[in-house]
Design a protein around this nucleic acid. Structure first.
Lengths: 339, 339
DNA sequence: AATGCTTCTGCAATCGTTTGTAAGAAGCGA
DNA sequence: TCGCTTCTTACAAACGATTGCAGAAGCATT
């Protein structure tokens, strides 16, 4: 910067002001031009580290993502980082486990690195991390999963609506004995989808035929929960899962019981993960645009960072029903289970 | 830091030395203890930004990943970031498209932010980015994809071996008329798998029955290439794809032709992506541990950063054959294609 | 007792910006 | 001509560490 100043025949402070769009009006146009030219010929670029030291800001945001490889978090991440970069921010991504202590440490690291804000894809319904950000006055937005009380902005899918789409579809096909494979209840996705399931059933004057909670969103847990569900409620003709992986777990169980999907049991998932259209039968599911979620989260974060006290605003994205082969009208006479 | 110095009754420079493991021996043990205690009671943490400004290092590494959501890059990323953090580094992740200009810009940003090194998952066989890192003297390691000439360390799968496993398996089943769905030839994965395919065939005294290149690793391109392959070589009984997505594209085409897999045509993929065991038929494929790749890349990068001129060393991971339902012995009399 | 050596600590410069304050120039009305 | 704004620009003090250098203290050697 000193060299640029020399070459342009001005003081470094003038160079700094000329280079910063916000302070540029303070400098006479002719000087700005000279500075620009000098900077160009020297191939000079501002040092973000030094700037960060002085200003306390960094144009860096931290993104905390659960360390589950196969899932919805990848598109959230690509959407978020892409949009962040159009706002001039870079992303520091950290994959974290469920350990709250580790999460707080990591957030501490990020704060030490002077991130301007955080995108959290990890929060449970009542997460200490949110309180931490609030205490540190660090802008944060939640994505995919929300908190119980809306203390910070969040971007989520309309879970109630998603479940309503699923139930409406099944009821329209003629199902009335429907069970639910619920997700982890400490996450908003699990909780709200469960509520949505019950509420949508009630709207049709129906009640749940079994509701089993899976502890995690995995195929194994899904298979196990489906086992209990079918065992306890052999009369059911349809299963609504809180997540595609749980639904795929249910596939395994249904197959083990010698039943077929959708003829014996219709199954409907949630998320529309990649490849679920290729499994057999292709999975009917509720599609959520996770990439769009990431983008919206980036926008929301930028706003909270740049306008000091913008209101806590939630963005709720509409889900879509994607009908494939795993749902059909129930059979009249059910063939006895062979297993 | 000043406060810590005051509380411990020493100069800031002593605090700095006491806190840095490398310089700690210079400080008498008793003083170190006092500093530690003071730092703890004040909840003091070193400021990485200031340290970075002074030292030019940052304990930050940049990771460049192609912006394709569904793929092998997620496990690479989780593996790499996890291992990096055990080495005390944090990751700045950037998802980038194929545009070379954009990639260089991004790398420039990262350098400006003083990253200590780069992990590149994006490189083509002859990538300007590698030259750029070399010119900037920025440590870099490649992962998954390698360069033509090994100018920097890389972590890759043993592609030749992978293809050999695939061919050996098919030949053992009785196949002899085998075609290849090759991947993009500007990436080492595409090129080497193609070479491996030909070489493994030759080892059995066979030659290729058709070899079509797909421009990108997508299901659509796979379907299209398979179309050409089957059209031009209706005699083939097996297809070896350079990638699972290409293989799944081939599924679509085979189905369209009214043929069945594996009876009419056996198909074998590459990577063992999540869920390919759930498609119908479950995909036989070559498994690569991408998470391990990420970890090894992190290790390699740490070494290159921390020991100035460690030799250019490549890590080659062994692939494994995973046999599932998409491969079987060829039928004796082929039923005519209906399409 | 003087010298030399080792070990430890303090001083102060430095990394590359940003920004409050002051000072100089220019314009204008009285 | 003088004083008073209004623009511009320069000065210099931060931001929070690291590190070469020098000096002080302690100890052993002669």
């Amino acid at each position: 910067m000193k060299q640029v100043a020399e070459l342009a025949g001005v003081h470094v402070s003038t160079v700094s002001r000329a280079l910063n769009p916000a302070t540029r009006p303070m400098v006479v146009a002719e000087a700005v031009a000279r500075v620009m030219k000098a900077a160009n010929t020297l191939g000079y670029r501002l040092d973000p580290v030094a700037a960060s030291l002085r200003t306390g800001r960094s144009r860096l945001v931290g993104v905390l993502v659960p360390d589950i490889a196969t899932s919805v978090f990848t598109p959230i991440l690509t959407g978020a980082t892409a949009r962040l970069s159009t706002h001039g921010y870079s992303a520091m991504v950290a994959y974290v486990g469920a350990d709250a202590r580790q999460q707080l440490d990591l957030a501490g690291d990020l704060i030490a690195r002077r991130v301007d804000g955080l995108i959290l894809a990890t929060v449970s319904l009542d997460d200490p991390l949110v309180g931490f950000c609030l205490a540190e006055k660090l802008p944060a937005v939640l994505v995919n999963r929300a908190e119980k009380e809306a203390r910070v902005p969040a971007v989520v899918s309309d879970e109630m609506r998603g479940m309503q789409l699923a139930i409406d579809h099944l009821v329209a096909l003629g199902h009335s004995r429907i069970g639910h494979l619920a997700g982890p209840q400490q996450h908003s996705t699990g909780l709200l989808r469960r509520q949505g399931f019950l509420q949508a059933l009630a709207a049709h004057g129906l009640k749940a035929h079994g509701l089993i909670e899976a502890g995690t969103y995995t195929r194994e847990e899904g298979a196990q929960a489906a086992q209990q569900l079918i065992g306890g409620h052999p009369e059911i003709t349809a299963i609504v899962a809180a997540n595609d992986l749980l639904a795929l777990g249910a596939y395994d169980t249904v197959r083990e019981h010698g039943l077929t999907c959708p003829d014996d049991i219709a199954i409907i998932g949630h998320n529309d993960m990649p490849l679920v259209d290729l499994v057999q039968p292709p999975l009917t599911t509720i599609r959520i645009s996770h990439e769009e979620m990431g983008r919206q989260a980036a926008d929301l974060l930028q706003q909270t960072i740049e306008s000091a006290d913008s209101p806590v605003r939630n963005v709720v994205l509409p889900p879509r029903l994607i009908v494939r082969g795993s749902t059909a009208a129930p059979r009249k006479g059910r063939i006895k289970s062979k297993a």
